[in-house]
């Protein structure tokens, strides 16, 4: 067989016609990708090497890596980067809560659907609308939180959105709430995929509840955990709307601003479009590296059933 020459099988007329159609179907999304992803990406990378303002000449203002050098020495960049990472504290919290709630729901027979829907409502709601709603929940004088805190403790609650520290807590609470429904649905699906017999076999061998959870549930839902982790990290780097809606101008002393908010502020607030593109490129590189590291590390803890 080694020397056999691979002969391309001759296609029938019908097969060829089908192939032509196949190309057409493939072309549609590919052209879309070229226009709406590839071109803007290439353009953004190119623009990131210029002091383009959106108004002036793009090619006449190429400055090489100057924007990148400026970014790395800009304290506001680092401040918003740190804030973005702090907000990610919400990711493990959300995953933990999501798993706990999913396990509880998994035991319910009749009300599972109802509660799943309830938890999923924030996910399908407009982010802008719920951000406005939560700005009121966090309101210093009239908000739900501070009203409850006053009723329970008699003291006035914190200035959730105005204080440099509390605004971060507020954002983490909001993002956790917003993302919870998604993790619950995914975990629920993951839990339902675990064959019953594993648990039964372990029980016969005398495993207790914790052992079942630790050695069967956790490993077998690890692909779901991995998926949630990756998507939340990527989403976490792209937080923008809630900051824009809930705080004025990035919060007191820019304390609530994220990387993407900083990007927007630079590009559209101060006409530094070339600079904004450089921030975007940098952000994409960071996301790429973190994602790659995650994929590399998954062998250590992600189990697949096959």
């Amino acid at each position: 067989m080694q020397n056999a020459i691979k002969v391309k099988p001759k296609l029938s007329e019908m097969a060829r016609r089908e192939e032509r159609w196949a190309w057409l179907f493939i072309a549609a999304p590919f052209v879309g990708f070229l226009c709406f992803m590839a071109y803007p990406i290439v353009f953004a990378v190119f623009a990131s090497f210029s002091r383009w303002t959106g108004m002036n000449s793009l090619t006449g203002n190429l400055v090489g890596l100057a924007n990148y050098a400026d970014i790395l020495t800009d304290p506001k960049f680092w401040k918003s980067m740190v804030t973005t990472i702090i907000y990610m504290i919400g990711i493990p919290i959300g995953m933990f809560l999501g798993l706990v709630i999913a396990m509880a729901l998994n035991r319910m027979k009749y009300t599972k659907r109802f509660f799943t829907t309830v938890y999923y409502v924030p996910v399908v709601s407009s982010l802008v609308a719920v951000s406005i709603l939560w700005a009121w929940v966090f309101n210093y004088d009239y908000g739900l939180f501070n009203t409850v805190i006053k009723a329970l403790t008699g003291t006035h609650g914190p200035n959730w959105l105005g204080d440099e520290v509390w605004v971060k807590v507020a954002m983490i609470i909001f993002m956790t709430w917003k993302g919870l429904g998604g993790s619950i649905i995914l975990y629920l699906a993951g839990l339902q995929n675990i064959p019953r017999d594993y648990y039964e076999a372990a029980k016969i061998d005398g495993a207790n509840g914790w052992q079942l959870f630790r050695h069967i549930t956790i490993p077998l839902i690890s692909p779901v955990t991995f998926y949630i982790l990756i998507t939340s990290l990527i989403g976490g780097f792209q937080v923008f709307v809630e900051v824009q809606v809930m705080t004025g101008n990035g919060g007191t002393n820019y304390s609530a601003a994220t990387i993407v908010y900083y990007l927007y502020d630079k590009a559209f607030g101060n006409n530094q479009l070339g600079y904004g593109c450089a921030v975007a490129v940098l952000l994409a590189v960071i996301i790429f590296i973190i994602t790659a590291l995650n994929f590399k590390g998954q062998d250590k803890w992600v189990n697949t059933m096959d």
Binding site: V45, I234, F237, Q238, C277, A280, V281, L283, A284, F295
Partner: peptide, 27 residues
């Protein structure tokens, strides 16, 4: 796995194409 990683990275790169900013204009 490489394909998967590439796809996910693409999601990340979408930050370059203004998808986030587009969301803002919903408002």
């Amino acid at each position: 796995r490489v394909v998967a990683a590439a796809l996910v990275a693409l999601m990340g790169v979408s930050s370059l194409t203004g998808c986030n900013v587009a969301k803002d204009s919903e408002k």
